[in-house]
């Protein structure tokens, strides 16, 4: 179980190899990578800057990971989220979940992303090719995705 908030890029293959090295209790590994799209509502983007709340970000990601670990039998998990100035095509976020069987790994990865998008204190600011730009609005669809897990909680 680990959480990292960093400026640097990450290497998916290397991260998975390090997370699962020497482990024989894992039968399923799911990874999700979020990347910077080259346009927003048809307008080309030149840069995306991610601001965050140092301290709270790590705490919140650890809470989210602990919640996933309590709900599913995870053998290992990893969340990496970048901040700073990014360009189209750059990696933003990596979620890795590993478990003995695939269902837990799939569900936990989706849960981690849904919670991260609505709870982790990150804010995206776009710069468009024409020089305009601004802070990205939160999406109602992200809140709806979160509600799904809360209504499923018994």
């Amino acid at each position: 179980m680990a959480v990292r908030v960093q400026l640097e890029d990450f290497d998916l293959g290397r991260e998975v190899a390090a997370l699962t090295a020497g482990r024989h209790d894992i039968g399923a590994i799911v990874t999700f990578t979020g990347t910077v799209r080259g346009s927003d509502k048809g307008a080309p983007i030149s840069e995306m800057t991610l601001e965050h709340y140092p301290g709270m970000t790590e705490t919140e990601l650890e809470r989210i990971e602990a919640e996933a670990t309590a709900r599913w039998p995870l053998a290992a998990s990893l969340i990496i989220h970048r901040h700073g100035a990014l360009r189209p095509g750059d990696n933003i976020v990596l979620v890795v979940t590993a478990s003995p069987h695939r269902q837990a790994a799939f569900e936990a990865a989706e849960f981690l992303m849904d919670f991260l998008k609505t709870r982790a204190p990150f804010w995206k600011k776009e710069t468009r090719m024409d020089g305009s730009g601004g802070w990205v609005d939160a999406r109602e669809a992200d809140d709806a995705a979160l509600d799904r897990w809360q209504s499923a909680k018994t």
Binding site: L50, V93, K117
Partner: peptide, 29 residues
């Protein structure tokens, strides 16, 4: 809002708070 780095609702009491943060809805991921 967050009090001492935990999300809170507008009705949350400030008693004992050291750090109070204000920000827009988050847009990470």
């Amino acid at each position: 809002a967050a009090i001492d780095q935990t999300h809170v609702k507008p009705t949350a009491p400030l008693a004992g708070a050291r750090e109070i943060a204000f920000f827009p809805p988050v847009t990470g991921g």
